[in-house]
Simulated scan of single mutants.
Amino acid sequence: PGTPFTSRTVFSAAHVVADPFADVSPDSPAAVDWDATLAFRRHLWSHGLGVAEAMDTAQRGMGLDWAGAAELIRRSAAEAKSVGGRIACGVGTDQIASGSLAEVRAAYEEQLALVEESGAQAILMASRALAAAASSPEDYLEVYGHLLRQAAEPVVLHWLGPMFDPALEGYWGSADLDAATDTF
């Protein structure tokens, strides 16, 4: 504890802890036990791990809407700062279901601003809305290029592909993995 076991940063995509006493329906926003959720993150940091927060593999699309993810980012980033923990947070477009390329870019920008304002490193996640709006590899290059030029610090690019989410088929402008990787 307290001593990193490698010079590399290892990020844990930790789940949130549900509030077992909350009176919620299946259609209600997630009820989070914030004390237990942040305690688990402190435990991970005590072992030298970073936390990858608000990720599609741990929270997004699994109970947290954008408002809940934004709250998780704010609270976890503040906690990371208070204990000297490393944190990176997911930036996506889940506050919109679909839209034009300009609307997708604006959704990404909103989330990027929140993550950077919180003091966390940004992780640019794949976007269902971008997959639906883009018509060519150039569309991806324009959106991601804009975001990368705008980012204050280096970002992590996160792309799991259609095996994780079929709505991401053809991401980066091609269903061919080699062609998509070239664009990426």
Rank of each mutant, 00 (worst) to 15 (best):
H15Q: 11
E79K: 06
S136Q: 08
G85C: 11
A13K: 02
I96D: 04
V32R: 01
S118I: 05
L130E: 05
C89N: 06
A106C: 07
S118F: 10
D27V: 03
R86H: 13
A13N: 03
L148H: 11
M125L: 15
A88I: 07
H146A: 15
R42T: 10
L64A: 01
L38H: 02
P26N: 03
A22F: 03
G68V: 04
R86S: 15
D56H: 12
A52V: 01
V32Y: 00
V83P: 12
I87P: 06
A30P: 03
V51N: 02
A122H: 00
S135W: 09
W66F: 11
P26C: 03
L101M: 05
S76C: 10
F11E: 01
S135M: 13
V143K: 02
S100A: 08
A102F: 03
R41G: 06
A132E: 10
S25F: 06
F11M: 05
A107F: 09
D65L: 00
G68I: 02
L44S: 05
A13H: 01
G85M: 05
S136T: 12
P20Q: 10
F11H: 03
H146E: 07
E110A: 14
S28M: 06
G50S: 14
A80H: 06
D23C: 08
P20V: 00
D19E: 08
A77T: 14
R60N: 09
A70M: 03
S98H: 11
D65N: 12
S118A: 15
